[in-house]
């Protein structure tokens, strides 16, 4: 399908790099706002009282592992090994789902402890930042599951390696963004 291109890079891949550049600005703005408003809340709960670093570290590890699965999935599809391709694609999606589950548990816990999106500036910036990231993970999971179903139907093969590669780009990007968020929000308090 890939026709000749002037830069020798697949059109979709190039578009995706541009998209990722754009997304960097999006998350950059969200993270900057979080930093600008850090310590400006005038009522609690404040971050140290509420953030559960061990729990989120596990989530982070889970997401990192999902990136590894993604790498394996792409490698499998590229070499035409669709059996493992399916397994790794599904694992990636599954780990993404686990991460989302973790986020649901975390958010519920925060709400029970009195931190909602409207409680204070920490709540505003925290929920909008991590929520936006969670929405990205959700899109990624849907995307991965779609590829997995296509693979089950036998409609995904080495010819579609580029599609999987782009999915991987997205997934790794979302993962990297999480590393930044985890560092900025959880580790540096």
């Amino acid at each position: 399908m890939t026709a000749h291109t002037s830069m020798g890079l697949d059109n979709r891949k190039m578009a995706f790099w541009a998209f990722i550049g754009s997304e960097c600005l999006l998350f950059g703005s969200l993270i900057s706002t979080y930093l600008v408003y850090k310590g400006k809340s005038i009522v609690g709960p404040y971050p140290p009282e509420i953030l559960n670093i061990p729990f989120t570290s596990v989530s982070t590890f889970d997401l990192l592992m999902s990136s590894l699965m993604m790498v394996l999935a792409l490698a499998a599809v590229q070499r035409g090994d669709m059996k493992w391709g399916k397994i790794w694609l599904f694992s990636t999606a599954l780990l993404g789902l686990v991460f989302l589950g973790g986020q649901v548990i975390e958010f519920t816990d925060f709400v029970h402890k009195g931190l909602t999106i409207g409680t204070n500036l920490f709540g505003c910036t925290f929920f909008v930042l991590t929520g936006t990231h969670g929405a990205h993970v959700t899109v990624g999971v849907l995307w991965l599951l779609t590829l997995w179903v296509r693979a089950l139907q036998g409609k995904l093969g080495p010819a579609n390696a580029m599609t999987v590669e782009i999915t991987g780009l997205y997934w790794h990007f979302v993962d990297v963004v999480w590393i930044v968020i985890f560092t900025v929000v959880y580790l540096i308090q």
Partner: peptide, 30 residues
């Protein structure tokens, strides 16, 4: 592609303030 994400975020904050009770631009909340 670099400028619109920034206004998207600014508008999203305003939207959350208006619909979901956040305080991104509210002095009383700090």
């Amino acid at each position: 592609i670099t400028a619109f994400p920034v206004i998207t975020v600014g508008l999203a904050f305003l939207m959350f303030d208006r619909f979901f009770g956040t305080h991104f631009y509210v002095r009383e909340a700090g």
